[in-house]
Amino acid sequence: MKTRILFACGCLGLGGAVATAAESSVAPAAVSAPAASVSTVQDELRTLVEKVRAKLSSGVRTEAALAEELKAFDALLAAHASEKTDEVAQVLLMKAMLYLQVFDDADRGAELLTQLKRDFPTTQLAGKVDEVLQQIEQQRESAALRAKLKPDAVFPDFTEQDLNGAPLSISGLKGKVVLVDFWATWCGPCVAELPNVLAAYGKYHDKGFEIVGISLDRSEDALKKFIAEKQMTWPQYFDGKAWDSKLGRQYGITSIPATFLLDRDGKIIARDLRGKELEAELAKALGE
């Protein structure tokens, strides 16, 4: 059985973990239900998920607005309470995903995942709960780190080597206006924004603008091929660890693209600027 996730997370760290659990093809559970019952659960869940997705597509994203659907999840669980299978556990997982991915309520989402582990202990989904709970805790820690990276704060320095083995640090670029860009070749929004970044670099590099790319890719060869094709000549940090990247973890990055524009003293001017917003801030910072 394979059920689609409720909410397209894009380039999100936690989204990947939750999606892995939600989309995994699961084998029959240790305690099996009759085939007809399993089919009923799957069909009812599929119908309910599509109803939720339709509301999300229309812009409905609050717990209150989806109260009817939340009650439907509970009713479906109650109707199959005696069936300790992955198919029924999936119902509870999908409800948890609503809280994690749509309502942004990590506490309630974690409660529901803990309930899944308790109520469906023999299922494969229960075996994945601890991993997801660990990532939820990492998300909380990351949020605390990101909260410190606000305008006028000094961007914390690092001392690493770039993709070519050259020294790389923020302090080494003092006197430059710097865009710190967390990205990856596999991230659609990152690639979509790249033409704007390239244009800004071409226009302002000679006037004191520099970019530091921090890649969350896994393949060094793929990264080198991509930056050569796109003529991205600025330095790149890469350690091949994707979401577990040393610098990604250090700065609490859980979604990309994530950018920080720094002034000549290394203070944050703004975060996550796109398109014309980036060019406008660069013009001001460089005295244009």
Rank of each mutant, 00 (worst) to 15 (best):
T122Q: 10
E137D: 08
A147D: 02
L149S: 07
H80S: 04
L100H: 06
D130F: 02
Y99C: 03
A147R: 08
D119Y: 02
L125S: 11
I170S: 06
R118M: 12
K117V: 08
S142F: 00
W183F: 09
L113V: 01
S171N: 15
E137W: 00
E141T: 06
L133E: 01
S171H: 15
G175M: 14
Q135S: 05
M97D: 05
S171K: 14
R108G: 07
K84E: 05
D86M: 08
D130Q: 07
K128H: 13
D86H: 05
E160M: 14
A143H: 07
D119E: 13
T159L: 11
K148R: 15
L179T: 02
A143V: 08
D130H: 01
H80C: 05
Q134V: 03
G165V: 13
K128A: 14
S171T: 15
Q124F: 13
V88A: 05
Q161L: 06
L112S: 04
S169K: 07
T85I: 00
G109A: 03
V102G: 07
L149T: 10
T85G: 09
A126N: 06
V180I: 12
K174N: 10
Q90N: 13
R108K: 15
P151K: 07
E137S: 03
K117L: 06
A143K: 11
L125F: 14
D162S: 06
Q138P: 01
E87G: 01
V180H: 09
Q135K: 06
S171P: 08
L149W: 03
M97P: 00
L98M: 10
R146F: 04
V177S: 07
F158M: 13
F158P: 07
D157Q: 13
A143S: 05
K148W: 05
M94V: 07
Y99V: 02
Q101V: 02
V102P: 01
T123Q: 03
I170P: 04
Q124D: 12
A144S: 12
T123Y: 02
F158L: 11
L112N: 01
K150D: 06
R108A: 03
L179H: 04
V180T: 13
M97I: 06
T114C: 08
Q115M: 14
T122F: 11
G165D: 10
K95E: 08
L93C: 06
T114K: 15
V102T: 04
V132R: 00
F182E: 06
E83S: 11
Q101R: 09
V154G: 14
K84H: 01
P156E: 11
L149V: 11
V91A: 00
K174Y: 08
A166R: 15
N164K: 12
L149Y: 01
S169M: 14
V180D: 10
Q134I: 03
V91F: 00
A126G: 10
L173M: 13
V129E: 07
I136P: 01
V178I: 11
V102I: 04
D86C: 06
Q90R: 15
R108L: 02
V88P: 05
A153K: 15
F182L: 11
Q135C: 00
S169T: 14
P151C: 14
G165T: 10
A106I: 03
L113C: 04
E160T: 14
T123I: 08
V88Y: 04
S169I: 14
Q115L: 14
P121G: 09
Q135M: 07
L168I: 13
T122N: 09
F120C: 06
P121A: 05
G109N: 00
